[in-house]
């Protein structure tokens, strides 16, 4: 029992090693300490939860009832206000998973593994929402629930990458082995992100190109752009709040397990 990996202490000493981690490393180490993160996370929580509720509700009411209908899509365009934020968050969440993967593989941060385990299911849910709302939008507009074009297929691949990650990180009796395998999957799977982003430019697809880009002016009226941005902000805060809460719970659960194991050994 004493050899169990769960007994591995989640504490600052865990990360200290003989090698000099460098400046980025030491900055990371400051916040990679679960105890310090716990305090930070608790203080941060209201600043995530309240904007999430207020902005999401405001954005959805604005999108559903106050914004104008599209000239050709009619009211179906309102699905955009939930579909586009879900799509952005799906990619953003996977990027976060990949960053956690690098932190885990290179710096061996336990907190990065805990975070990856909590981001995975939330990201998978958001990707599912993106696919579902896209399907509900595609049926009346395009005339098809689903087509195998490059954009839709690459997002479906992202969904399976998420599912694989969720399963892999919990697949081993030794959590550190699962974390290592999942981190490799997260980092390798990140190649799908530029494919999703540029699929609508590289290949001809049924999915339309992006309306909002970093380089060009949005091809959207401001009366539709504002509710979209409010919804995106609100959903992003919600995503962060949910991951934050889950991560805090995960740290407490780990601590409880350690105490129980220590008690069993004493």
């Amino acid at each position: 029992m004493s050899a169990s990996p769960l007994a591995e202490p989640v504490s600052a000493q865990d990360h200290g090693s003989a090698t000099n981690p460098g400046r980025i490393g030491s900055l990371l180490h400051r916040y990679a300490n679960p105890g310090r993160f716990l305090r930070l996370s608790e203080r941060l929580s209201p600043f995530l939860v309240w904007p999430a509720i207020v902005l999401s509700v405001a954005g959805m009411v604005w999108g559903l009832f106050l914004s104008p209908a599209d000239w050709q899509q009619g009211d179906a365009v309102r699905i955009m206000y939930v579909h586009v934020p879900a799509a952005w968050l799906a990619s953003l969440g996977y990027a976060a998973l990949a960053v956690c993967g690098v932190l885990s593989l290179v710096w061996r941060h336990r907190l990065a593994d805990l975070a990856a385990a909590e981001i995975g299911p939330v990201g998978a849910s958001v990707t599912f929402l993106c696919l579902l709302s896209g399907s509900l939008w595609g049926r009346p507009m395009w005339g098809a629930w689903w087509v195998w074009d490059a954009r839709l297929t690459s997002v479906l691949v992202l969904f399976f990458l998420y599912l694989g990650h969720v399963a892999l990180i919990r697949a081993f009796d030794d959590p550190s082995r699962g974390a290592r395998a999942a981190a490799i999957l997260a980092v390798a799977g990140a190649v799908d992100l530029p494919i999703i982003k540029f699929s609508v430019q590289w290949w001809n697809t049924l999915h339309q190109p992006d309306s909002i880009t970093l380089t060009g002016a949005p091809t959207m009226s401001f009366s539709m752009l504002w509710p979209l941005l409010v919804c995106t902000l609100g959903f992003s805060f919600a995503f962060a709040a949910i991951v934050n809460t889950r991560l805090r719970a995960a740290i407490l659960e780990t601590r409880t397990r350690q105490l129980l194991l220590q008690g069993a050994r004493e």
Binding site: D70, W142, A144, D210
Partner: peptide, 11 residues
């Protein structure tokens, strides 16, 4: 299938 473009505007 209809392929709509990336422009969104009110009626």
């Amino acid at each position: 299938l209809a392929k709509h473009d990336e422009t969104y505007m009110p009626k």
